[in-house]
């Protein structure tokens, strides 16, 4: 892509990324949440890849990192949910942390943790799919 596209993408990606993180972290206070924020994060990555071209070797490394972080975050969600089986009322997906004051950033027990983990999972999954489509097309050629 041309210099203008690259520079604008560089400047805007920062704000898209910050917005995605805001949506994820404030998921239990304002509209949004893990799924929407994760998709925005993936969009920021995709913008960078589209603007700065494709270098298959470099992308392959990124794809490995994306699939590893995706797997780790969904595993952590499961572990957090299973821990609920042993604490308090002993229910799967039990909200066992103290819920705090409604409307504050650190409140609602385990819900923000689930939000962050699901956000990472969604971002990594969408990025993995996008990278796979690019990398394996290069392999055919």
């Amino acid at each position: 892509m041309s210099l203008i596209v690259k520079k604008v993408a560089q400047l805007i990606t920062v704000f898209i990324f910050l917005y995605g993180i805001y949506i994820i972290v404030h998921g239990h206070l304002t509209p949004g949440g893990g799924f929407a924020g994760g998709a925005i994060l993936a969009g920021a990555y995709i913008l960078q890849i589209l603007a700065f071209g494709r270098d298959p070797l470099h992308l392959k490394k990124k794809e490995t990192g994306a699939s590893i972080s995706e797997s780790i975050s969904i595993l952590t969600v499961l572990i957090l949910a299973v821990v609920g089986l042993f604490i308090g009322t002993k229910v799967f997906f039990n909200n066992y942390l103290p819920s705090g004051k409604i409307g504050e950033l650190v409140s609602a027990g385990t819900i923000p943790l689930y939000n962050i983990l699901i956000g990472i999972e969604v971002a990594a999954a969408l990025l993995t799919i996008f990278l796979a489509l690019i990398i394996y097309k290069e392999e055919i050629e």
Binding site: G27, H28, N95, S99, I102, S107, A108, G109, I111, N115
Partner: peptide, 12 residues
């Protein structure tokens, strides 16, 4: 749930 956003409270 302690969550101000109703939808997220139900989802998680």
């Amino acid at each position: 749930t302690g969550s101000a956003n109703l939808v997220t409270g139900i989802l998680f």
